[in-house]
Amino acid sequence: MQTVDCEGKTTREINREIHRVIEAGEKEITLLNPRARHNLAVAILRPVRIIIEGSVGYYCAGMIGGPTVEIRGSAGWGLAECMMAGTVVVDGNAGNGAAASIRGGTVVIRGDAAARAGISMKGGCLIIEGNAGYMTGFMAQKGTIVILGDADEALADSMYEAEIFVAGRIAELGNDAVVHEPSPGDLAAVSATLSRFDLSVPRTLQKVVAGRKLWNFDKKDFELWKEAL
């Protein structure tokens, strides 16, 4: 295991050092003193393990494809944005737009997620152990979001084929979002995903999907379109 100390280094120097250590064959890297700096551990395409000892700022673990990134603190805006594969686990809370536009892999937020988590997801999985903020899953096209706490307003607004599972209370569904009973197959899949992170399926679980009324324009649904963002 190798450590990279962020203290006194520019963001570019930190990321270059991480990449250099990975190129040299290292499989486990610990980042010290991140102090909520932005753009840490980005664009990593190898299946290495990166442990960040503290909170991170914006866009941590963005554009990654393969690594496991463990954040021993909280995360700012755009966590794991555009991730292709791998795993990102945050011990604390996450800021706006966590797991935005991810295409694969799994993001786990042990605390609460702020607004627009999982916005425009195109695949992969987002697990929020705490509460999910405003507009979670907005326009998500594919993939799965599991919320073990409560969900705030505008949940699953204007969504495509993503699926959201909520254990707690839903403050308000977004435009065109509908609630279904999860099938045994759904529960088995959620259970398998959660067990990877020592989490069990909660007793009650609602499944939220698109009502498909916003997928194609129809004059009959004009009122719905006026409301939709």
Partner: peptide, 8 residues
């Protein structure tokens, strides 16, 4: 210190 982002 725990940090969080308030909601809308």
């Amino acid at each position: 210190l725990e940090t969080w982002e308030p909601s809308n």
